[in-house]
Design a protein around this nucleic acid. Sequence first.
RNA 1: GGGCCGCUAGCUCAACUGGCAGAGCAACCGACUUUUAAUCGGUGGGUUCAGGGUUCGAGUCCCUGGCGGCCUACCA
Length: 489
Amino acid sequence: MREPNEQQEVRLKKLDQLRERGVDPYPPRSCRTHTAAEVVRQLDELSGSTVTVAGRLWSRRDMGRTVFADLVDGSGKIQLLFRVNTAGPEVMDFLKSYLDLGDIVQVTGSPMRSRTGEPTVDARELVLLAKALNPLPDKWHGLEDVEKRYRQRYLDLMVNPEVREVFLKRARTVSEMRRYLDERGFVEVETPVLQTLYGGASARPFTTYHNALNQELYLRIATELYLKRLLVGGLERVYEIGKDFRNEGTSTKHNPEFTMMELYQSYADYNDIMDLVEDLVAHIAREVNGGLVVRFRDHEVDLTPPWPRRPLREVIREVTGVDYGAHPDAGSLARAVAKAGIEARPGATRGELIDELLDNTEPHLIQPVFLLDYPIELSPFAKRKPDDPGAVERFEAFAGGIEIANAFTELNDPVEQSARFRRQVADREAGSEESAPYDEDFVNALMYGMPPTGGLGLGMDRLVMLLTDSPSIRDVILFPHMRTRASEE
RNA sequence: GGGCCGCUAGCUCAACUGGCAGAGCAACCGACUUUUAAUCGGUGGGUUCAGGGUUCGAGUCCCUGGCGGCCUACCA
C-alpha cells in the first residue's frame, strides 16, 4: 500500500477504532434475505415485514436525527431510512461515526414508502460487511477518464451502469450462442492454446517456452486445424468459443487476445453456413437486444434475414470502381488501385491489393451482407470453386461497417492442402511473417478423409460491439490490453 | 511507425498573453426528525505525469521521456 492520502487516513483510523470496539470490519458471513430489486418489486407484500438487504452504501442525506441513504447491490438501488426512534442511538452513532460512502453493509428493517413515495427500508439493524478504504469516484459525473476506466474496470462497473449493461449483454451473447449451437447438435470442444505449430490464420504468434520439456511453444492464432482433425475423427459438428492470440498492433477493432467462435459442420458447404450465420445472429439479437434493428455508429442496422449474398468482386467494383477480375496480374491491378486513389504497399501481391480494396470497401458495408468467392491467394484452407479455379468458396459477413464472420467450404483434399502449405512456407521464406508453417500432422489427418465441410469463424468481440453500439473493441473486453505504467508498482 | 490532442486535489473540471494553483462533489467540524445531485455555516486537502531548460517568475514557453485517446499506416 502506498502512503495513504487524506481520505484513506480517515478510513484507516475508523478501521482501527472499530477493531478496538471489537467490531470485525470484514466479517466472514452475511445474511441477506432480499435483493434491492426484490424489495422494490414486492414492496406492498413486504410492507410491515422484516427484510435484510446488503450492498454498497452509495449516498447519504444526513438530516440530523434522520438519515437517508442509498444502498446499491447487483440488482439495483434501494433507499434506506435511519431514524433515531426506530434504529436507536447506537445505530445512528455507528452510521455517522464509522461508516463511509463505499462501505459494504447489511441492513435489517421494514420495507415502507417514504413521504415522497420512494421505496425504502426503515432500518433497525446495521452491520458493516466490508470497510472501503478508497473513496468512490464522483457519484454525479461517474468515471470519465478513459484510461482509468480500462485499467480499473471495477470502478467503471461500479459507477457507470451502461458499462455493466454491455458486459451483461456480452455474457448473454455467449450463452445464447452456446444454446443455439447445442440445440443443433454441435459439440463444444476445447483444443490446445499452447501449440508446437501454429496455423489456421495469417498472423504472427506469441511465443512462449515450456521449461520441463525444453520446448518453444506458440499461443494459438486460430482453432481451425485442431477442430478439423476432430471431423476426421468422426465428430460431425463441433465448435469452440475461446481466446486466440495475435501478435500485432492494437486498434479499435483489434486486441492482442480476443474471443473467437469457430464451428465446423460436416456434410455442409458455405451456403449452409450463410444460412446458419444470419439465423444465429438474428437469434442472438432478438434474445439479447429484443429486436433485429440495432443502432451502431449513428446507423440503423437491420439484421433481419435473409442477408444479401453478393460476389466480392462486384461489391468492390461498386464501392471502389476497381474490377480486380479485369486485372489478372499484380502490376496491372496495382495501377488500377493507384488510379482509384487507394494507397497500397509498393510491390504488393495481387492478393494484398485485393485485400487493400476490401479494406476500403468494408466501412461502406453498413447493412448486413455476405461477400462471396474470394481469390485463392487469400485463403489457404478454402476449397476452390469448381467453375472458377482462381476463386474459393469463401464468404465474409459484414454489418455496421465491420467484419463479423469469415467462412468457407473447407479444403479436404490432402494433396492440394499440402501444396497450399508449401506455398505458405515459400511466402514465409520470401519474408511474409504472417504465413504459417507446414503442418504435417494436419495433412496426414486429411489423408484419412475429412467429409465435405462448411466452417466458420465469428469474432465474438465484434459481434458484441455491434449489438451494444460500442465504438471500440476495448469497450467490450473487460480488461483490454494496456501498456504497463512505469509509475505503478 | 507517423500526425493531432490530453495528463492539475479521491472524482469531474477551471486557471486569459508567463504573474499568489481554484470550484463543485467527496472528506473533516457543526446545525437540521421524510430527503433523494438534500440544504446551510465553517475547515483541511496539490511532486500541476516525470526529468531537464529559458525566465526575476513556468500548470502555462522549449527539449527529452512516460501513459492514454483519436486519426492514419502496418497487420487480419
